[in-house]
Design a binder for these strands. Sequence first.
DNA 1: GGCATTTAGTTGAAAGTTGAATTAATGCGT
DNA 2: ACGCATTAATTCAACTTTCAACTAAATGCC
Lengths: 160, 160
Amino acid sequence: MAIKSSAPRWLSAREMKAWRAYIFASRRLMDSLESDLSEHDLSMADYEVLAQLSDSPERRMRMSELAQIAMISKSRLSHRMKVMEKAGWVKREECVEDRRGYWAVMTEKGWKAIVKAAPDHVESVRTRFLDHLSAKDQEELAKIFDRVEGNLRGQYADEN
Amino acid sequence: MAIKSSAPRWLSAREMKAWRAYIFASRRLMDSLESDLSEHDLSMADYEVLAQLSDSPERRMRMSELAQIAMISKSRLSHRMKVMEKAGWVKREECVEDRRGYWAVMTEKGWKAIVKAAPDHVESVRTRFLDHLSAKDQEELAKIFDRVEGNLRGQYADEN
DNA sequence: GGCATTTAGTTGAAAGTTGAATTAATGCGT
DNA sequence: ACGCATTAATTCAACTTTCAACTAAATGCC
């Protein structure tokens, strides 16, 4: 895909430090958030799915849109939905307007589950991450990662 | 584990912005790095394993140490080693000093594989991430994430 | 209307990951 | 030197994710 350029531009010490700090902290951070969330029998991905559903109108969303917004593949969402359906947190309803489609609908039980998990998760995000950032840090982080994501969005054609 | 505190401290707008920017950009970033690396038939985790091996003395490391430094479970490393061994990139050698143990040893072929992959991976880290950060951004990021990791290391007992 | 193409979503098999159980060797205390 | 707890590493079974193939409905086009 990319044309191989001649001499690789290796990372400077400064770049290396930034990259390694970011990647190692992030892996550890994600691991601990996952582990915290697992006490509610949720993965981060499942949480994201439920969270997105929970603040959609009617707590329902089309499968494809949900997959896209939760940044998981359609196939993965299908499989997870099957599991979460078994757990009674969501159900699927046929879509009248487009009969190929389905609505992913959050149940009352699912709502209760996320309402229960959310405060702990937020607390976890705090104690693991946010509480260690100053207000200025937070602003800089937001700026930096918004920029990074903007660029990625441009570079990386969304296929799903 | 944690004692449930009374009222959840929800995220302020600033905190929310930082958190969401970070998490969404990170997911996209990791996806694109993985996807770039996959052209060399490597995942980030496998790359990390090989990279760590490649700059150990003799290009060999004990399984447990390798697992720890690459931040994957021993079980997972065992499985990956089996696959990478089949690919001819590594082999395992019995350890004389401690006969419960094994050395993970990088082969010449493995060395060639990572030497080939590294420039592309570095380029990928650049174009996806580092090139969009100013020198100052890089320094701040390093500082922030070093701090975050330090705290995590303290909080989260390493079990593996 | 009729035919090709695209889109929504699911499925099944293969590959990857996890966590607990297992095997075997080491080390420590008395 | 004995027994017991610990450590190194693998294995098994359950679960999750991916990838490609599939079904069925919608759309576009002439």
